[in-house]
Design a protein around this nucleic acid. Structure first.
Length: 518
RNA sequence: GGCAGUGUAGCUCAGCUGGUUAGAGCGCGGCACUCAUAAUGCUGAGGUCGGUGGUUCAAGUCCACUCACUGCUACCA
């Protein structure tokens, strides 16, 4: 039987600066989904990368006195390094300046052109040099002498430039059909509603080339023009699958299972991208999911506010798994979220150190001292034992449901509900008391607790790969039984197996000095 | 302006097709325990479920109106 494939992507990042927390968040979340699917037995292809063309890159390079390509190389590397620092498990890292991407972009362009969907015309509108943007008449204000101004206050002038256009308008009905046929194509629902309403209100053709700069993919047959962001950036997803070579070993991954993107670019992925694919006669992605933005104590991150945190520094300060856990547990995926030093520390100490870390420590240290450092004997199970085991074994199904909608936080909530129940169970059974009255029963309680920990260890791996592995090490779980398929009663811990000395799983976070807020 | 959504304990939020004393986590008070990373367990404090008016035997849960807030309303990636 063929292994189910799962292809997921992040958006490609624009590397005119260093990666920030927003990039990190998207990568962490996508990585957790990728790892989840791998552990669940799927053939996963996980892609991330950088979108390196366009005027902003040129301008940034000029400002820094670098050739554009050098800037792109340097910053692309910074994004790669961030991925490493965060434990990202992407299978490829695509850069739009790569040869393979030029090939793919020009190929899809030609397909769209052959379909009669590309034509040369004039792009006209009110342009603000300062904002580098066009504005609709309705957004403008008129000053003295008839001068018109953008919302930013910058003057605008009427501009007419040659540009190639994509017949997006032609796809309006087809897109609406798509949204109807695939109700979960766009998630979460609020984003879907917005897109549907946008498309319903009418689509205009799209300007897809520029002849005002050259840092881009040349338009086939007219090298005066380079492709504008839409065609260039979105195409990366099929470039990585080997397009236009449909014999490429990676082509089997297309169409993508999901594009994980920021809520601000949902429209491009849910409207322009499928329309392009329809035009080129290619399959449409299964889903597009827009995550929310992070704020620092409810305030937008900005350089001027000085509340921009470097994700790599955060990983060093709090721990990689710790911040992965924090963002994925604290923020319901799809909604905006807020973070603060206090909130991070609270999660680390309450959930990781106290609830899970201490549960492992209190039970495994008893095993170590009272069971000859071996998996305890499993005697007859009491109803309490059965109940806690059943809820642990039930987690995998719950997690699949949650992750089916990318509700990573819901999966973590479920896991921690079991962790809390297990602490209750442990306190209720009081194995330290049984030690004197009924040692056999004590062993069964300890076995049950360890078995729950095994399941938990397996399930936290997508979010906290290192810590999950550490926990499974403490339980001497073989490497080949750490996937989700083993999170059931058939693979339970074997009494008598030697265990290593228990070590702390999650240290408490202690403030280095008082008064240090982040 | 139009469209969509949100408003439930100090904070963050659950509450499916309306039905016993409205829930969880965190925070806060008290108690217990000692296996454990000063961890854990138990327990308490009570929020007019934004407001008003309806429908109903019964509404946080449906309807109308109203207030506040948020998102979208295309070429910045």
């Amino acid at each position: 039987m063929a292994q189910e494939r799962f292809f997921l992507t992040t958006a490609i990042s624009y590397p005119n600066g260093k990666p920030h927390l927003g990039h990190a968040y998207e990568l962490i979340a996508s990585d957790a989904i990728a790892r989840f699917m791998r552990l669940d037995g799927k053939d996963v292809f996980f892609l991330t990368g950088t979108d390196e063309h366009g005027l902003k890159m040129v301008q940034t390079a000029e400002r820094e006195g670098l050739p554009v390509r050098a800037l792109a190389d340097r910053n692309a590397q910074a994004f790669r390094d961030m991925g490493k620092a965060l434990g990202a498990s992407n299978d490829d890292f695509i850069r739009t300046t790569e040869e393979r991407h030029y090939e793919a972009s020009q190929a899809i362009w030609k397909k769209m052109e052959a379909a009669g969907d590309i034509y040369l015309s004039t792009h006209s509108g009110w342009y603000s040099v300062r904002d580098e943007a066009y504005f609709d008449e309705s957004e403008l204000t008129t000053g003295e002498g008839g001068q018109k101004f953008a919302p930013s206050g910058a003057p605008v002038e009427w501009s007419e430039v040659d540009s190639y256009f994509f017949r997006l308008s032609k796809y309006q009905d087809k897109l609406l059909d798509l949204y109807k046929a695939q109700p979960n194509f766009i998630g979460p629902d609020t984003r879907r509603n917005e897109v549907v309403s946008f498309v319903s209100s009418g689509l205009k053709d799209l300007s897809i080339s520029r002849d005002t700069f050259t840092w881009g993919v040349p338009v086939p047959g007219n090298p005066k023009h380079v492709m504008y962001v839409w065609v260039d950036a979105l195409t990366n997803y099929i470039t990585a699958c080997g397009y236009p070579d449909e014999g490429d070993p990676r082509w089997k991954y297309w169409p993508a299972s999901v594009h994980i993107i920021g809520k601000d670019i949902v429209r491009f992925h849910a409207i322009i991208w499928p329309a392009m694919l329809m035009s080129a006669g290619l399959p449409i992605p299964q889903r597009v999911f827009g995550h929310g933005f992070l704020t620092n104590r409810g305030e937008k991150m900005s350089k001027s506010l000085g509340n921009v945190l470097d994700p790599v520094v955060m990983a060093e300060q709090y721990g990689v798994d710790q911040i992965r856990y924090f963002f994925l547990r604290e923020v319901p995926f799809g909604q905006d979220g807020s973070y603060s030093h206090e909130a991070i520390v609270a999660r680390i100490n309450a959930d990781l150190a106290n609830d899970l870390g201490n549960l492992a420590q209190r039970s495994l240290s008893m095993v170590n001292k009272n069971c000859e450092a071996k998996v305890p004997a499993k005697g007859p199970l009491s109803p309490e034992d059965e109940a806690i085991l059943a809820s642990a074994y039930g987690l995998i199904a719950e997690s699949r449901v949650a992750m089916g909608d990318f509700q990573i936080h819901a999966m973590l909530n479920a896991i921690w509900r079991v962790v809390a129940d297990t602490n209750r169970y442990f306190a209720g059974q009081a194995p330290w008391a049984l030690k004197k009255t009924d040692p056999a029963r004590m062993e069964t309680v300890l076995w049950t607790t360890a078995e729950v920990l095994r399941v938990v260890g397996i399930l936290i791996q997508p979010v906290m790969p290192e810590s999950g592995a550490k926990l499974l090490d403490l339980l001497a779980v073989p490497a080949d039984t750490r996937a989700f398929a083993a999170a059931d009663a058939a693979h339970q811990l074997v009494p008598g197996t030697s265990l290593p000395e228990p070590k702390g799983l999650f240290p408490r976070y202690i403030e280095p000095e008082a008064g240090q807020g982040a």
